[in-house]
């Protein structure tokens, strides 16, 4: 029964796809896409294009997480910093990263550092702003408890601030993940010669439509896989949060 529920909707979509695809050059049938998938990706493209792209995604994401949390905590703890920086942060977060790419290219060149920087430039915002919010909203009674019992400095950070802001920080990290996948593709649309996103765009330009669709499929599976991994991580880190019923199911 559970299998039916999990696979039911995707199977239905594939059937609809089969029915609809027929004449159009731009919508090949599922079996053609499946064949193209096997031929294209289960080859040296896996190590040559897919893995480097995913590697850059993870590097950019990790950097964004470090930056976002590292800056978010001090900003969240200081009302004065918050008041001063909030308008500036909102200004920068509103700039779509693709627009910044030419600027980033000037600063960081055209290789891996540029691509990682593009990913960071978009992913850092949800992490940063959610961290600030989570830290700002820490419980006052717990804060008083810390003061009374001498929980200060690094100890306070480890035992109070970070776990307390944890749910909000994880929400920011979740948002950053989906943004990261999009930016991974976008970063490869400029000055690239390899990578998952680049290859999909190349197929589109070469009119290799079945291969292009197979690439899009792979992107979707990648996103799904990463999101499932993230959920697992979240459940582990925030087990207390889910257990307490504070989280919505």
């Amino acid at each position: 029964m559970r299998v039916v529920r999990l696979l039911g909707v995707p199977a239905l979509l594939v059937l609809v796809w089969w029915a609809v695809s027929g004449g159009s050059f731009y919508l090949p049938s599922p079996d053609r896409v499946a064949v193209a998938f096997a031929e294209t990706w289960l080859s040296e493209r896996l190590t040559g294009d897919v893995l480097p792209s995913v590697g850059r995604l993870l590097a950019g994401y990790a950097l964004a997480a470090l930056l976002g949390i590292g800056l978010g905590v001090p900003i969240g703890l200081s009302p004065r910093l918050r008041a001063t920086l909030e308008p500036v942060l909102e200004f920068f977060r509103a700039i779509p990263p693709p627009v910044l790419v030419p600027l980033i290219m000037l600063l960081a060149g055209i290789d891996t550092p540029m691509k990682v920087l593009v990913i960071v430039s978009g992913c850092v915002w949800p992490v940063l702003l959610n961290t600030v919010e989570g830290v700002r909203a820490l419980d006052g009674v717990l804060a008083d408890t810390c003061r009374m019992y001498g929980v200060r400095g690094g100890s306070r950070l480890r035992r109070f601030v970070l776990p307390g802001a944890g749910p909000q920080i994880m929400a920011g990290l979740r948002q950053a993940l989906s943004i990261g996948i999009i930016l991974m593709v976008i970063s490869e649309m400029f000055a690239s010669s390899s990578g998952l996103g680049f290859t999909i765009v190349l197929f589109q330009r070469q009119f290799q439509i079945a291969e292009m669709w197979s690439g899009i499929l792979l992107l979707g599976l990648l996103g799904l896989g990463l999101s499932l991994l993230f959920r697992r991580l979240e459940r582990w880190v925030l087990s207390w949060y889910y257990g307490s019923g504070a989280a919505r199911a």
Binding site: S24, F25, V185, M189, Q204, I216
Partner: peptide, 17 residues
């Protein structure tokens, strides 16, 4: 610039008409 990923979707609609 590169609307490369949006293009397939747009083309899908255009091809239909």
């Amino acid at each position: 610039m590169r609307l490369a990923l949006a293009v397939p979707l747009v083309l899908l609609l255009a091809a239909a008409c």
